[in-house]
Computed example of a mutant assay.
Amino acid sequence: MRRACPSLQSTGRSGSSRCSGTMAGPASTDLGRALCVITGASRGFGRAIARDMSRLVKPGSALVLTARSAEDLRSLQVELAESEAGRAGLLLRCVAADLSRQDGLESIVRAAKEAFCEDMDHVVLVNNAASLGDVSRLASSFSDLTEVDSYLSLNVGSALCLTAAVLQAFPRRAGRRRCVVNVTSLCALQPFSSWVLYCTGKAAREMTFRVLAEEEPDLRVLNYSPGPLDTAMQAQARSTTADPGVRESFLDMFAGGRLLSCEASCAKLMTVLLEDRYTSGAHVDVYEL
């Protein structure tokens, strides 16, 4: 029997038992005058987030865009600068950084501080950057501690440390909203053969943000699962996944045109953020929306 691939199905499960967010009144039409920090912004889903957020923030806002590729960031900066928001004065800061290095994290926080104005009323951090890891092997082959530590440092440790640093840089204050988005996956909830690094990283990372939601009641925390996206990472999964059932599921979805576009999934994420009715810390799957 063929196994379902990661992020193919809606889980219908919540990641937190916290009370819901704002329930009364219509959804907002914008994110306010905001500072938005987006990791993994140069390509795929992160690039779609940057485009959508640039259209949803008020004048006087700033986007801090970070990724490893300086060239891809520059092309995104040019694109957004020429957009309606860019022409209206949206501040754009691009930081080419390695999130697994302390100096990389510090450069992002420094850029965020420089871009921030005291009259900004919303700070949004989107932890989107992630790597697939080696899916060509089974769990029993991972005996090198350095290899595993390196993966978890980039995919778990960096998200925790960057989030903590941003929250310290922009502490709780009257009139200031703060929101943290973790881009997660069904792999945070279900195991998939030959995906031990990715599943472990996503599960640990999601629990990180569930704990954060418990500790910071004023903070809005969202674990958003965007579904199977038509990206370079998905192409890598189709070609290198060791488990034949999982690989075949990916190939079938691609052949059947069932992959989601980054733009379609991102539009649903923006709706969730604008409505602001999700349970803080919850796992929200694109197929539930």
Rank of each mutant, 00 (worst) to 15 (best):
L8F: 04
S10C: 14
T11R: 04
S14P: 01
S20P: 11
S20T: 13
G21D: 08
G21S: 15
M23I: 14
A24I: 12
S28Q: 15
G32N: 08
A34P: 09
L35G: 08
L35C: 01
V37H: 07
G40T: 03
A41T: 00
G44L: 11
A48D: 09
A50T: 09
R51H: 11
M53E: 06
V57C: 13
V57K: 09
K58L: 15
P59V: 06
S61Y: 03
S61C: 13
A62G: 04
L65M: 03
A67I: 04
S69P: 02
A70G: 07
E71G: 01
D72L: 10
R74M: 15
R74V: 12
E84P: 05
G86P: 09
A88G: 06
L90I: 11
L90E: 06
L92G: 10
R93C: 09
V95P: 04
A96E: 11
A96P: 12
A97L: 07
L99S: 05
E106I: 13
E106D: 15
E106Q: 15
F116N: 04
D119K: 07
M120S: 00
D121S: 10
V123Q: 00
A129G: 00
A129R: 05
L132D: 11
G133I: 01
D134Y: 07
L138F: 15
D144R: 06
E147I: 10
E147A: 15
V148N: 01
Y151H: 00
S153G: 13
S158F: 05
C161I: 14
A165F: 04
A165P: 05
Q168H: 14
P171Q: 12
A174F: 14
A174I: 15
V181R: 00
N182T: 07
S193Y: 12
S194M: 03
L197C: 12
Y198G: 02
G201K: 05
A203V: 04
R205G: 09
R210A: 04
V221T: 10
P226E: 11
P228F: 10
M233D: 04
Q234F: 10
A235S: 15
A237I: 06
R238T: 11
D243Y: 10
D243N: 01
P244A: 11
G245M: 09
V246N: 06
R247I: 02
L251G: 03
G256T: 02
L259H: 01
S261Y: 06
C262A: 14
S265H: 09
S265P: 01
S265N: 08
K268I: 01
L273S: 08
L274R: 02
R277G: 12
Y278Q: 10
Y278I: 10
Y278S: 03
Y278A: 02
T279P: 03
S280F: 03
V284D: 01
Y287C: 01
L289S: 13
